[in-house]
Amino acid sequence: MVSLLDMPRTLPQQLPPPVDRSAPEIEPAPIIDVSELDFTYGNHQVLFDVTLRIAARAVTAFIGPSGCGKTTLIRCLNRMNDLIDGARVTAGSIRIEGVDINAPEIDVVDLRRRVGMVFQKSNPFPKSIYDNIAYGLRIAGITRRSRIDEAVEKSLRAAALWDEVKDRLHVSGYGLSGGQQQRLCIARALAVEPDIVLMDEPCSALDPIATAKIEELIYELKQRYTIVIVTHNMQQAGRCSDYTGFFYLGRLIEFASTNKIFTNPSERRTEDYITGRFG
């Protein structure tokens, strides 16, 4: 009988370093710099002195109870709040790559091309899948068919939808399932090659499998894009994001790496919210 001790053993020369799944606490290279931001709708202030920095090529999640201002903040980043009468920044600034996006000389149209958005309720246009994705390109002035074909395929691949729709590109976008529609909206946003993608509760209307596919997609996308996601689903924030900001009543209560927020938050209110003690 051969003893276990006699068997040849090969020890690895060098043990691999332990995998550190927590994002570093050191200041990440920020691409968005929000500084002491106050935001008001009409007479009603909704954001108070918000300061945070969003890291490039990482996923940042905003969590908080309803009405805490997280959707307002994310819509400030691509100035979609401009569509609402009386909504304006009353103090502070938002800088993207060093440029103040609320300065009067900024071209909002260009900003929105570089900061894309995916909405809570998926809103594919009542056009074919192909035309949905080509829309952003065409309004930017790109009309060459070959270029558009290329971009459509590229975006659909990036959104993990290509294999499912490649032989029915001229079918209406409404013929897809809910999860596929949302991925179509993501592909549409990616087609114009933004740097930053904002997602406002992208999975709240989807079933668990569709949600999982989108979370997987987010994980892949963050290698190339900076992603900011607003979510009500704490587990999703915990799974998907590298950094998390907790908002309450218009203020940023805590902003840190996701691992820290969900294992050992510094603020009492953060802990109470994430453990389901209020909100």
């Binding site: 704490m234 587990q235 969900f262 294992t263 050992n264 938050p265 802990e271 994430i274 453990t275």
Partner: peptide, 10 residues
């Protein structure tokens, strides 16, 4: 059932 986080998880 509860997917606890933070202090609850610990």
């Amino acid at each position: 059932r509860f997917q606890p986080v933070a202090s609850d998880l610990r």
